[in-house]
Design a protein around this nucleic acid. Structure first.
Lengths: 135, 135
DNA sequence: TCCCATTTGTGCGTATGTATC
DNA sequence: GGATACATACGCACAAATGGG
């Protein structure tokens, strides 16, 4: 499963395996990912390697870690729509810690920034928001 | 500088210190961040702790690591504008590895996904793109 | 060209704390 | 209370790439 002699790092290979399982649906939203210890045994790597892989998936927004319950495939929350008016624009970036608290954002979820023509900026959790042009 | 007895983890405290330096402008875009070894000595923590802090800032899009040259404060690339038409919508998420390669995205930079009314989806590097409603 | 110091990447082990079950 | 599981933090080692002399 994992080739220590590959030029691709072991933790990357493990992340790839788990990512495939998630995106293919083999691991459904809400499903638990094997514990660090189980993954360590199954793939014959160190716990460090397992944790690096999990951290990668977390940064991609694919899993949430609920210590010490376990690691789970992210569920998709319902999406709300924000409407753009003329002169507005939208960008996205990663939130700072204060913004993460404010929006209750898990790691790996970007912030949608809506800059209104008035000069004010509104921020939204990207996993819960869709932006459309005004009617 | 770093309080080992604080309830805030050491690596978080270090990330906070470096983040402040960057957002305040004390560390300008393009400027090198001290090496892991220097930070380790300066703040009296392990290399693991330093690396956790750097990884945090990377996931926030604040720094780029150019091994083995060093770690640098991110420069802001020029921004291009994408126009939304009626029936389109925009979301954002973190890219998968293939998308990161395709757009040459550093870590910590989200992907802007423009879903056209036609059903096609376009993706853009969030740090180089601004989306506006059509005329 | 070659050597060397620097720096980051990766991986191992270990230990302690804390929250959940 | 005990077992499990994740968070944090320390140590060490080697590889690979860069840059200077």
């Amino acid at each position: 499963m994992i080739d220590p002699n590959s030029d691709r790092a072991a933790f990357q290979q493990l992340a790839d395996i788990l990512r495939d399982a998630i995106t293919s649906g083999a691991l459904a939203p809400g499903a638990p990912v094997s514990s660090e210890e189980r993954l360590r045994q199954e793939y014959m790597v160190s716990r460090t390697t397992v944790r690096e892989a999990i951290k990668k998936l977390k940064s991609e927004g694919l899993v949430v870690v609920e210590a010490p319950r376990g690691t789970f495939v992210r569920r998709q929350p319902p999406v709300e729509t924000v409407t753009l008016r003329k002169g507005d624009n939208v960008t996205a970036r990663m939130p700072n810690p204060s913004e993460r608290r404010e929006h209750d954002l898990p790691e790996g979820i970007p912030l949608l920034v809506v800059n209104r023509a008035s000069g004010e900026a509104e921020t939204y959790a990207a996993d819960r928001t869709r932006v459309t042009p005004g009617p």
